[in-house]
């Protein structure tokens, strides 16, 4: 099948960017979106042009490296699918696909379809851990975890940190990501000791990174390849209210976004 890829080309953050149209004639319907770009890049390299930069790693939908906007939707039109898992059979012969990087101030532009998502790392650093005692491995059944609690936590833990939620949000808010991390650790008994500091720390860092505010509209959850539910945002807010009150004299300090 034949496709036209309209791709955002920009050398670096200071350069001026623009869309460039590339016809790709030999697209196999079973190719993934990234393989389609591989094919295009081969031809660009042969022609001596600069290949299109995009991020990828596992190509199995589990690492969270890949992702860009495809026709105005983060990770493209398929539900619960990362860009690397999106096969071209979902498009029709002759379609034009608009590929654009995630756009948010907190995601510093790097090149073409690549942005720097270190803001997410800062949020994780601000509270994405649990304390464990060293020494002998504890017995597996020492701490009992209810099925519902385990499920909630595991569902939230499915977040791969791809950034589609921020990209899809009209406010460029990172509430779904931060909520997923807070829910993942905070609902488990193992995460209980740091629960309040985690909520305060991660929320403070999320704000320091200048993500937008959440208006509870749900675009994030719909774009999320792991279908993280909106409840995680409520969990974040609930932990945040309680922690803000109990630890009002002990607010954690975020790090400056640029560092």
């Amino acid at each position: 099948m034949k496709l036209t890829l309209k791709i955002w080309r920009q050398k670096n953050v200071d350069a001026k960017g623009a869309f460039v149209r590339y016809p790709v004639d030999d697209v196999d319907p079973e190719m993934s979106m990234l393989e389609c770009l591989d094919v295009l890049n081969e031809t660009l390299i042969l022609k001596g042009e600069e290949p299109v930069a995009f991020e990828h790693d596992c190509r199995e939908g589990i690492c969270g490296s890949c992702g860009f906007m495809i026709n105005g939707e983060a990770h493209g039109p398929e539900k619960a699918t990362t860009t690397c898992q999106l096969t071209m059979r979902h498009f029709k012969d002759g379609d034009e696909l608009t590929l654009e990087p995630w756009r948010a101030k907190a995601f510093v532009f790097v090149k073409d379809l690549v942005v720097n998502r270190r803001a997410f790392d800062h949020i994780i650093e601000a509270g994405g851990y649990v304390s464990v005692s060293t020494g002998q491995a504890p017995d597996g059944n020492t701490i009992l975890v209810g099925k519902e609690v385990a499920d909630t936590s595991m569902d939230a833990a499915a977040c791969i940190g791809c950034g589609a939620c921020v990209a899809a949000c009209p406010n460029a808010s990172a509430a779904l990501f931060t909520g997923a991390k807070i829910t993942h650790l905070g609902t488990l008994p193992q995460g209980e000791p740091e629960r309040e500091r985690r909520a305060l720390g991660m929320v403070a860092q999320m704000n320091a990174e200048e993500f937008g505010s959440c208006t509870n509209i749900g675009e994030c959850s719909a774009a999320c390849p792991k279908e993280i539910p909106l409840e995680v945002i409520a969990n974040m807010n609930r932990d945040y209210v309680c922690a803000s009150f109990r630890r009002r004299d002990d607010l954690p300090t975020p790090v400056t976004p640029g560092s």
């Binding site: 654009e100 756009r103 460029a172 200048e210 937008g212 675009e219």
Partner: peptide, 29 residues
């Protein structure tokens, strides 16, 4: 204040952006 922060959060907009899940009411608050 939230509107101003939100405007700052995405200085470069999308050339194309679809709304796939949000209600009309929520987008027009």
């Amino acid at each position: 204040q939230l509107a101003l922060a939100t405007n700052r959060a995405r200085p470069v907009g999308y050339s194309r952006k679809e709304s796939i899940n949000s209600s009309y009411a929520s987008r027009t608050m």
